[in-house]
Design a protein around this nucleic acid. Structure first.
Lengths: 222, 222
DNA sequence: GGAGTTTTCAAACAAATGTTTCCAACCACA
DNA sequence: TGTGGTTGGAAACATTTGTTTGAAAACTCC
């Protein structure tokens, strides 16, 4: 550990930005190491492999997030001792936890973009890793949402949570491109907090939307 | 054109499936050509490059889609001659147009996954290509949405449309992974049409959500 | 200050990638 | 049947990829 950023830290800092910009497969170790001004072999020395580097990049965000989110849920449960936590409070708490973490590290934009990539890119190992390491806090959250929305069928709630996950990740991870359009067309420069403010009523309304009409007799589709 | 699928067609059929499964960078031409049982050089001979192949895969979906969507909007405008087309009708028409196209070709799942990849993967050339080739139909659509939602500030409508785009693309493009979870946990095997049915009320509710509280005095955020 | 460990570095490695070449096979049309 | 243009195919090409190697350098600790 030196006062000048550590080699490990320099690699992580550079890698997360490049991954966020270009994706995992499209970012070579040589690109990372040259921009980070470290030797090519440093990645394999410190992390073991490129896969492990990718996971380490995620861990640096997700570890503090899960800690904070668990703590925030603890506090929320204590405040509503025994009772049901309203949906708005749950969503609010999640939003706050997500917003807090990168503030002490790097940009939320990068974090969300990485999450978006984790979903969309192949990288089966990544999805498996995230599921195994951080699935529990998400399970806890969905259980609380279940209590807050007793009228929603389980399957419907499952899908709506993922709808909203898509809304948030997609928007925030594509923020850069969209921001430019929005600024040009509407003269309004948005930042992440601004978007979260806009997202709040949309997400609440979506979760509280009326149930869909029941499925008709179905024929299979590819 | 032979009675046995054309070489070009075999390449496209195989490529779109592999691209959807693994992404563009992660799918090699050798993988495509060997699975399609065509020679490696066939891709460069018929398409010129891998980039061009990727665009051709998209064109095979997007060309019929834009034709149908324009036609559907023509009909919708004629039916509401002079008047405003309700938001539900617009969303319904778009959903129907999206659903129709792959029915005559291949799976909607592949189509949506490709769209998701187009958004999330680097592949700058792809986003540019899609924007240039197919941007006009979307401009037309958003203008109709504007007329249908006169109370929504322009910027708010812009963002909400993108929220919903995220909802749809994210969910449908990650369908395979989510479907397995949903089936295991809720014993319910969903298909794409099923999800579209679930999406309908959510999207409508989200677009009609109350306006967010006005922005407080803002401090900048990365 | 020197033994022992950790970290850095340049170089090489094997494998995989997109692309090109060159020739054979095919096919329509005279 | 022969000719000209199109398609198919095996091989090679030049790069780029992640990873490994082995030795030099830096650091730790007694």
């Amino acid at each position: 550990m030196a006062q000048q950023p550590d080699t490990v830290t320099r690699i992580l800092d550079t890698a997360e930005v490049l991954f966020a910009e270009r994706g995992f497969a499209e970012t070579s170790l040589r690109h990372i190491t040259s921009k980070a001004k470290v030797n090519l072999a440093a990645v394999n020395y410190h992390f073991g492999s490129k896969k492990a580097l990718i996971q380490a990049v995620f861990a640096r965000y997700l570890d503090p997030f899960t800690v904070r989110f668990h703590a925030a849920l603890d506090e929320l449960e204590a405040r509503h001792a025994g009772g049901v936590i309203p949906l708005e409070a749950l969503l609010e708490t999640m939003a706050r936890s997500v917003l807090e973490v990168p503030a002490e590290r790097h940009s939320l934009k990068v974090f969300m973009r990485l999450l978006g990539l984790a979903y969309s890119q192949a990288q089966g190992h990544l999805r498996r890793y995230i599921q195994e390491e951080y699935g529990s806090v998400f399970t806890r959250f969905t259980e609380l949402v279940r209590l807050a929305t007793p009228d929603l069928p389980d399957a419907e709630r499952f899908w709506r949570l993922h709808f909203m996950l898509g809304t948030v990740i997609f928007t925030l991870s594509g923020l850069d491109a969209l921001r430019d359009i929005a600024e040009k067309d509407y003269g309004e420069r948005v930042n992440v907090r601004d978007l979260v403010r806009r997202l709040r009523p949309v997400v609440v309304a979506a979760m509280n939307a009326p149930l869909p009409e029941p499925a008709p007799a179905q024929r299979e589709v590819g």
